[in-house]
Amino acid sequence: MFGGFLGGKVVSTCGMWVQNIAAAVLMYDLTGSNLMVGAVSTAQFVPMLLFSLWAGALTDRIDRRRLLIAGRVMSGVTVVMLATLLLVRGTKGFGGEAVLLVAVFLAGTGWALSMPPMQAMVPALVPARDLEQALALNAVAPSLGRTIGPALGAGLLVLGGPALAFAVAGPAHLAFAVILLAIKPRAAARPSARVRILGGFRYLRADRKAAMLMLGGAAVSFGADPVLTLTPALAAGLGGGDETVGLFATAFGVGAVIAVVALRPLRKVVTLRPLGVYGFWVLAAGLVVVALSPAVGSATAGFVVAGTGFILATVVLTTRIQRRVPDELRGRVMALWGLAFLGTRPAAALLDGLIADAVNVQAAVLTAAVITLISSLLARVSYVER
């Protein structure tokens, strides 16, 4: 069961990254503004702020698999409709920036509905002894998609422009929904009392260490935002084009794959707590290399380093929070995890875009590196664990 779930998640994440790259490039081509590219990321992730708590409560109240299917269908249908508009009317007549932002918002809403059940289902798909490895693979799956998706998106942009990219991204979301129809997870524990939307907040208020880990997820996501928001401007500044945007995002994903390979050997000699701190440090170091790079090659290397740190920090934080949360609260707490991890992107995207337009793109990347380095303190929260 878990293999099919993981494969579907990778496929859907590939689609999301193709969609993200295409939307960012299309907006930059339409406006030439880093701020408007940031607005695309904002439209993608604002639904996390609006709907995550409600989706988390639904996850603890109804069938998690069906809710996840509904979210993937919503994203897929929206992106397919955007692709159809572009194919029929072209980039000049499809509706411009407003239509693009609305479509990205609706696709993001589908993702907001999907995130809590996608996280909460994992323990019901594997035996208890395999939970840590499954959680690690589940956290790595987006990075595998990040490795494939940007390269695929860049190739599709070169071959057929944004219309072709969106035409591939939409069915990728729908494919995950089809795969889920064949998966039958174990029944989840249901709350004995009424499911309250703010139950996750109450749990985090009572468990301060879990709350610190949640803030760590927000911080590492903030540090990774330049991969989405700033790569078009970085590529242009170094004399590259759409293919360089894809190269940078792919390099970040390659770093994540390196982290996956290194994770098991590292766990034999390092416990989760310091490994999470090291992940923050490696991510910050990679961002500094990117900011100071005079050429595409060195910037690409910096993104590889950043991707390695990002996935190390992400896997550690995800594993630690999933180990602590009771199953009857899992949907609401993991909704807050998704909110912390992805819901910070609107603020990060706007801040990165504003700094890049007001100063330069290098200053924006360095700001993200400094925030990441300071935030490594959040990963130092400790309790008894192996």
Rank of each mutant, 00 (worst) to 15 (best):
G199Y: 10
G253P: 00
F2T: 04
A251R: 08
R345A: 15
P142N: 07
V158W: 10
D130L: 05
V77D: 00
V158K: 08
A167H: 03
V122A: 02
A193S: 09
G90E: 11
V288N: 04
A43T: 08
P150S: 03
I197V: 15
W281H: 10
A163T: 00
I311K: 01
L152N: 07
S221I: 05
T229P: 09
P274T: 07
V195L: 09
I258G: 12
L113S: 09
A24D: 06
V288D: 00
V316H: 00
L30A: 12
D60L: 11
L215K: 06
L215T: 00
L339Y: 01
A306K: 06
L53M: 14
L238Y: 05
L85M: 05
A368Q: 11
R202S: 12
E328N: 12
A251V: 08
M36T: 06
D357K: 03
S143L: 13
F105T: 07
A262R: 07
A172S: 14
A188M: 08
A379D: 02
E385G: 10
M81T: 05
V359C: 10
D60Y: 13
G297W: 15
L292C: 13
V73Y: 06
L339N: 06
A233L: 15
D225M: 14
L215C: 03
N20S: 13
V260T: 10
L164M: 07
A364F: 07
E385H: 11
G239Q: 14
L366P: 04
V126Y: 01
F280I: 03
G149R: 02
M334K: 06
G255A: 05
R202D: 15
L137W: 09
L266K: 11
R72Q: 14
R208M: 09
A210C: 14
G96Y: 13
A172L: 15
A235T: 06
L67E: 08
G302S: 10
L85A: 11
L198C: 02
V168S: 03
L86M: 13
A193K: 09
R323W: 10
T318R: 11
A379L: 01
V315F: 00
R65H: 01
V270A: 12
V270W: 13
S75F: 08
A167R: 00
A177N: 01
L101I: 05
L68G: 02
A301D: 05
S293R: 02
T319E: 14
A379Y: 05
L157Y: 07
V46L: 14
V290G: 03
T318N: 13
R66H: 08
T250W: 11
V10P: 02
F303N: 09
A256K: 05
L58T: 00
L87I: 12
T229Y: 10
R129I: 07
A251I: 12
G93E: 03
L68D: 00
A349D: 13
F201G: 05
R194Q: 11
Y28S: 13
N360D: 15
I355E: 12
F166M: 13
A233W: 00
A177Q: 00
L26K: 08
I69Q: 14
